[in-house]
Amino acid sequence: MSQPIIKLTNVSKSYDDHNVLKNINLYVRRNEFLTLLGPSGCGKTTTLRIIGGFETPSSGEVLFEGMDITSIPPYQRRVNTVFQKYALFPHLNVADNIAFGLNIKKMDKGLIKEKVKDILTLVNLPGFQKRSIHSLSGGQQQRVAIARALVNEPEVLLLDEPLGALDLKLRKDMQLELKNIQQKLGITFIYVTHDQEEALTMSDTVVVMKDGTIQQIGSPVDIYNEPKNSFVADFIGESNIITGTMIKDYLVDFAGRKFDCVDKGFEANEEVDVIIRPEDIKLVKEADGMLLGQVVSVIFKGVHYEMMVTSNGISWMIHSTLMVPVGSKVGILIQPSDIHIMKKVKAI
């Protein structure tokens, strides 16, 4: 495997007494689309700003191709940023905004013009050169911000929730466009979002963060199928999280009965979190079920129905394309491989 282009080792950051990042270790490979995902305030922006050079870590270091760049100012880093609120220069028109970095590099004027034209075509805004920033819609400003960063051909592009201000439809389009651009230009993307769906669709690697710590790093499929703890499971997609007891290897007790499962390596009678995805639960006839329950609500979600079923005082969220009417008595069926057992996260 080639050397990582960016590496954070033991990076911590605190403001006064407030620890915002706690011992972050992370590497990013060349041409990778890596996403920092986590709830608001978990330190995503701070991590990105440390990579961009706008914050210095309280301890730890940032390596760029193996070189320590922790104390190098932003303007000397081969990294560009698309800011959360675009930060386009209001006194310059679209072309001058995009050419800002190239002008500083004293590039030939004719060449700059050419590059601005090409990049505007790439972000789907051909002919927008002379437009003023105020005259652009949110989505257009967004594209100009991306173009302004991309035109410098950075080795790494940092994007802080770049699609946050857009409506759903435009966001979906832009997700595809960004992914295309990233693949076409072969630039390493470090992307920040709190939208798990966005993270799963776009990324090669997802880093799930919480309270300034990394919870899990992995491919979208790994993160979804093998969440490391109940926080990740809950944050990525929807989950039923129930407390259970591990009787012995491959046997777990929850919801009032014993289930076969595929997990091992826990202590006998250890309290564990049992996590089951709503789409992994089958509703069957009462006689065929492992648990008995009653449907209490049904919501149509577009592709599937989301049903709440109570059984022995536990409510289960179940996704299915088949609708079972409210009030029906049903059986619940869960396959051993769909039962994910996790060590209990200590309550904080």
Partner: peptide, 27 residues
């Protein structure tokens, strides 16, 4: 003046004098 504009200029390769010349002063 929005501080993120100054950061954006710095991000695009402007040292502090250039940031002043191209962003702070014109604004």
């Amino acid at each position: 003046i929005d501080k993120s504009l100054l950061e954006a200029a710095e991000d695009l390769g402007a040292d502090s004098i250039t940031v002043f010349r191209k962003v702070t002063f014109p604004l």
